[in-house]
């Protein structure tokens, strides 16, 4: 464990807590893509199957449980309590365009052609694009509540921090994880446009609004 990864995981944890906090305080899941949240459940469940057969550490164990549990809880909230505040008409990204290619790529690029390793690869590739329905929704509405942008910013910071973590690991442990690195770079790249608006508007105290 190094500082970059720990801070990255902390940002990831914080992003989820911010999202849950947003839903409870505004009593709404307006502006949140159900599809992106559902993809995260798929990501965590397929990636953390190793909970059943590999022990890493107490930290690793509880973080995995938290990510699976909290993502399911978010879906649950969106489908029950806050269902009336959700607008499927604007959450229109076609996720089959993500699931299909990720399945094919996972079958080609994996560290071992075994069910759990293929699912792990799949989860890495899927995570890298899982934010697209959310960014698409944001693009469509052209604006976002400030708290929603903090959620997205924390999620982007989490991914960005994994990059120095891999560089650090390359120099200290001499190991590279090409699948995670490639997907991680793609995922971080998707946030660049968002971050530009976040830094130039939200952090200056303005509302998040995309240029017309």
């Amino acid at each position: 464990m190094n500082l970059f990864r720990f801070l990255g995981d902390t940002a990831h944890l914080a992003s989820i807590l911010v999202l849950i906090h947003k839903m409870h305080t505004t009593k709404s899941c307006r502006g949140i893509s159900f599809k992106t949240q559902a993809l995260y459940v798929a990501v965590f469940v397929t990636r953390y199957l190793d909970l059943f057969y590999r022990w890493v550490s107490l930290y690793n164990f509880f973080m995995k449980l938290f990510f699976i549990g909290s993502s399911c809880y978010i879906l649950f909230l969106m489908k029950t309590k806050f269902r009336p505040t959700q607008d499927p008409a604007i959450d229109t990204f076609r996720i089959e365009y993500l699931l299909g290619p990720c399945t094919v790529i996972a079958l080609i690029f994996n560290y071992k052609f075994s069910p759990t390793e293929i699912l792990w690869s799949f989860s890495i590739f899927l995570e890298s694009v899982a934010i697209l329905p959310q960014l698409f929704l944001l693009q469509r509405t052209g604006e976002a509540e400030t708290i929603t942008t903090h959620y997205l910013a924390a999620l982007g910071i989490y991914r960005a921090l994994y990059i120095p973590n891999w560089i650090y690991r390359y120099f200290t442990e001499g190991v590279v994880d090409p699948i995670a690195i490639t997907a991680g770079l793609v995922q971080t790249g998707l946030y660049i446009d968002f971050f530009y608006v976040y830094v130039t508007k939200v952090l200056q105290g303005q509302k998040f609004e995309l240029p017309a």
Binding site: H12, D50, S57, K64, W120, Y162, R169, G174, V175, V176
Partner: peptide
Amino acid sequence: AKAAREKDEL
């Protein structure tokens, strides 16, 4: 460097 999956990462 060796190419391998980092099994302790989340």
